[in-house]
Design a protein around this nucleic acid. Structure first.
Lengths: 139, 139
DNA sequence: TCTTGACTTGGACAATGTCCAATGTAGGAT
DNA sequence: ATCCTACATTGGACATTGTCCAAGTCAAGA
């Protein structure tokens, strides 16, 4: 993820403490935090960081294609740093946990031409829902 | 859709003017209104209907499986009365228009067993995104 | 080290949704 | 036809998530 910072600096990004901390929070596998969760975790390292900056930074990372925005429920959007590997999401209907998963074939090809209604279709997101092992056994 | 009202009455639903109007608004093909849009349209026929009632009624219809809740962007949820025919959604990235579409095969089968991580997967939603014909030519 | 334009901040505001106590009413009972 | 009452509705306060802006701050090139 520090590659990320380098890459962004190459694109003219000014490298501030705030942006560094946000990038650190997003480091790791299977990270799917909401903006406020990112803010909370970032605050542990940089207490004065403001919500506005976290929102701005996440928005920029999304625009730059470095982070994916995921809205599985109607609640807060979540941010997925795993933007460079094609994947889909598996969501627990009970606790909301998200896992990255990989599917067979290209979901785009499942949409026949006549079902495209003249749209220039460029993207497809697939979300699987079910009960995760913890929730199955737990309650 | 008036079948709907009958069906619900059979389930013990009390049939009020408000619920009737909400059901009427949701009548038709390719309807994907937000709660506030439903409220606006319902108000044309029953001016005193409150937002709370619209939200309540939509929530009940969703619980009863008569209407689907769709959240394609992080914005307002949309309500899709076409709950009894399996379908997916095609969304215009520019204007937000939604179309119901039908895909080849069962998207669930594209998720291999080892990619299920012990989840009891029961549902899959596929959302295609692109630019609709109006937006392509228009601007 | 200086300068400057990009970045950050806090707080007001907007959009969407939830909750609740008071009031109204659908539909069964009489 | 009328009454009862449990269920439904209402309006407004509140919660959550996100956006905007004017003023202050700072990274990084000169």
């Amino acid at each position: 993820m520090s590659d990320l910072l380098e890459r962004l600096r190459g694109r003219g990004w000014r490298l501030t403490a705030q942006r560094r901390v946000v990038a650190e929070v997003l480091d790791g596998e299977h990270v799917h935090y909401t903006a406020d969760e990112v803010h909370a975790r970032a605050s542990e390292h940089l207490p004065e960081i403001s919500r506005a900056t976290v929102y701005n930074t996440l928005g920029e990372l999304v625009s730059l294609g470095e982070v994916l925005e995921v809205s599985t429920d109607g609640r807060a959007k979540r941010y997925d740093p795993n933007a460079h590997h094609d994947h889909q999401h598996l969501v627990c209907s009970r606790c909301g946990t998200i896992r990255d998963v990989h599917v067979h074939g290209d979901p785009l090809s499942a949409l026949p031409e006549p079902e495209r209604y003249g749209f220039q279709v460029s993207e497809v997101t697939v979300t699987y829902r079910g009960i995760c092992p913890d929730c199955t056994s737990g309650s």
